[in-house]
Design a protein around this nucleic acid. Sequence first.
RNA 1: UCCCCGAUAGCUCAGUCGGCAGAGCAGAUGGCUGUUAACCAUCGUGUCGCAGGUUCGAGUCCUGCUCGGGGAGCCA
Length: 465
Amino acid sequence: MDYFKRKKIKDILYNNISREEYQDIVVLGWVRTKRVSKNIAFIELNDGSTLHNLQIVFLESEKFPLDNISTGTSLRVKGYLEESEGREQSLELKAEELTIIGDAPADYLLQKKRHSFEFLREIAHLRPRTNTFGVINRFRSKLANVIHSYFQSRGFYYIHSPIITTSDAEGAGDLFQVTTLDLNNLPLSEDGSVDYSSDFFGVKAGLTVSGQLEAEVLATALGDVYTFGPTFRAENSNTSRHASEFWMVEPEMAFCELDEMMDIIEDFLKYLFRYSLEEAKEEMAFFNKWIDNERIKILEDIISADFERITYTEAVKILEKADAEFEYPVKWGIDLQSEHERYLTEKHFKKPIMVTDYPKEIKAFYMRLNDDDKTVRAVDCLVPKVGEIIGGSQREERHDILLKRMKDMQMDIDNYQWFLDLRKYGTVPHSGFGLGFDRILMYISGMSNIRDVIPFPRTPGNARF
RNA sequence: UCCCCGAUAGCUCAGUCGGCAGAGCAGAUGGCUGUUAACCAUCGUGUCGCAGGUUCGAGUCCUGCUCGGGGAGCCA
């Protein structure tokens, strides 16, 4: 199939091919569009290596089997590269041999025009062949790689937290249950509840909603660690920002307090944005042109801004004095609504902000209690247009205080004995945060629906493909 | 889960006051041109989301359902 001989179109168009090789080029790809006339014909070929197509020129076009070629057809073309006479490309391939690998009948659904994202979601097996989804999938790969390079270059270890868990993932959402029991014939205990002792793991199990607790285990052994993997939430959320299966980045740092972690959050986000602008120019230019023409400026503005840091209490004071009508009135103790978050980051500060020290009642059990006994060392990072993009906290490292908090919240202590042990033996202050990978992709690209940055999105009622 | 909006040709959509179902694009055929979302001419395309109801007559009005979109909550 000339797998090793062929040249990728990206290398051809980005001048990674030496002049000596110009005379003997093989490319393999899919037809995007064809223009045929009596004496000359053109095909735009795409092989997925880049957004851009290679123009194939057929001089003496009647010698080639062009009638059988349409949008979507896969081809092998052999020829030689030359400077183009046309205006819109520098190099083009003059064809000498043409082989049709797989034809594409007239009912091929992708036309050479814009399709709606809603329609393309219904043909998720074909949409990666479009410009937009090609760019997104390549960018997704690149950004995943950058997340690894950020942490690896700073001495963090990449850890694999379990995907199947048996802890009740306190407060992080509903679990998808994992079982091998026969659902039509469930073993029951005497009280009528399901008897899990004969289930695969001997206890009730589910898919992970967060790798954080396990990340804390590794952080208190390896120092700095991060997870980057799939996360599952069985919540009936029907929004453009929620998926039932998504990817999350969760760094966890030993000997790190909240203020130090906030430095990392700011540096981390700016690193991702800077990388996107400098190293993914093709993708960013595409997003800026076709998805949201403010995108590049928004990222540039964030990179050059210092993130504002305020406490929840200060935020509430600002909102109470705000000259704005809120649907939900503000008072100390409530969780901030997205209208409040948007006011703070878009209207008041007009830049990214990090809000800290929330009331303990509205945050998770593992967050470190402040001396006021009312607030915990949590942080939400809010950015204009999107709202919360990162949530994190300094963890409660004091054994007795954590135990009391768990008892107050009536948690099953036995299930978390291992978590308490981290505080019993050589405890250290430590902090961590969670970044929704798909959401940062949305933010950088300007795509407004999470279903369009995940190749095969899973949402309530939909797990096709 | 709650609120609002929508569903008509392969795609994007129009369809007035309830009175014979429309356009552009895509596709097919022919022509033409170093073309580039090519261009010109000709041709075909319907379970009007599903199930009921009102009516002489429903794409149009009413009810229920399904699916999709936007917003909210939950969160990442």
